[in-house]
Simulated assay, not measured.
Amino acid sequence: MSEEAHDVLDGAIPPPRNPNLFGHQAAEAFLARSYQSGKGHHAILIEGPEGIGKSTLAFRFANHVLTHPDPATAPDHMVAPDLDAPVTRQIASGASHNLLHLTRPVDAKSGKLKTAITVDEVRRAGHFFAQTSGTGNWRIVIIDPADDLNRNAANAILKILEEPPRRSLFLVLSHAPGKLLPTIRSRCLPLRLSPLSDTDLASAMAALGLPLEGGRTAETVLAMSKGSVSQALKLLNYGGAEIVTAFTDLLAAEGATARKAMHRLADVLSAKDSDVIFGFFLQHLGEHLVDRARAAAFAGDIGSADRYARLATDIDEKITVSQAYNLDRKQTILSILEAAHR
């Protein structure tokens, strides 16, 4: 799959051709040494919050393996990919015969990414291995992220992981590994990545031409992004900070003022090409409810904690139904905002 079909935020560098990786030196060293030993695991579950560099690390490691196909002669460390090297150019353009990137496909009718990685995408892995079985080369599959696999796709991947082809490597990315099939997790070596420190996040943003040079904006981005480059980009380039402020003000409002605020926010979140900021808002709302439930539980208010937990579940169900039946997004958002306000 070419990088153009991948979901890349405005201002970001597509992971296949990103020369920069910050904050994960220990993970890089582990992967390089494990590969050099010749005893590396055939499936690695790279897990951690969204936007901290999992995909960039996966492509960097894939580049490392394909550049040094003999583990015995591979270096014990990884370096930034050479953007002019044939291996890197092939990976970046989606033309590598030795690397398959499984991610959500584009819907031919809408031109937008589908909501899940389907079993048809996983079947591409079967064809990929069949076509390259006699080459003797490494064959690498990046599942990005495995959280997006629907049930049939997850079961299909599991079958391949149970009997992996020779000289195959699976890099399974996950933002929430607890939601994966336990049988998939059990067949992978877990590699946990932590959110970026403020220093590493600032370095990453500077590398994208968005330096955080002090002041209230920088403090807000560092605090709200929680070590995630993608969250920082959404805050800076997609109006995420304004969305959070509007939601906070809405919760404090009453009566007609609250209703007007709900409609203004719903208009923004349901506008054309608002998928990114809508997803950002849902994540923020989910974190808000979890924080409220946790605070209530710590305070001994089990009833309130239960109500917040139930509300989070109800909202997830509303979103699932809305997406499944292509319901009007604004009405769905208004329903969610009303429930959150209550």
Rank of each mutant, 00 (worst) to 15 (best):
L289P: 02
L289R: 15
L289W: 11
V290G: 12
V290M: 13
V290N: 14
V290P: 07
D291R: 15
D291L: 14
D291F: 15
R292T: 07
A293F: 03
A293M: 06
A293Q: 00
A293N: 05
A293G: 13
R294E: 10
R294S: 13
R294W: 10
R294N: 12
A295P: 15
A295F: 12
A296H: 06
A297C: 09
A297K: 08
A297M: 11
A297S: 14
A297N: 09
F298A: 14
F298K: 15
A299F: 04
A299R: 08
A299Y: 05
A299D: 11
A299S: 14
G300I: 00
G300L: 06
G300S: 04
G300F: 07
D301H: 04
D301R: 00
D301C: 05
D301T: 04
I302R: 10
I302K: 11
I302L: 13
I302Q: 13
G303S: 12
G303A: 12
G303T: 12
S304D: 12
S304G: 09
S304M: 08
S304N: 11
A305G: 09
A305D: 00
D306M: 11
D306P: 08
Y308F: 12
Y308E: 03
Y308G: 00
A309L: 08
A309T: 13
A309I: 06
R310I: 04
R310T: 08
R310A: 12
L311V: 06
L311I: 02
L311Q: 10
A312L: 06
A312K: 08
A312S: 11
A312R: 11
T313F: 06
T313V: 04
D314S: 13
D314L: 07
D314V: 07
D314E: 14
I315W: 01
I315K: 04
I315D: 00
I315L: 04
D316K: 07
D316A: 09
D316L: 02
D316C: 05
D316S: 07
D316R: 11
E317D: 11
E317I: 04
E317Y: 03
E317V: 03
E317P: 02
E317T: 07
K318L: 09
K318N: 05
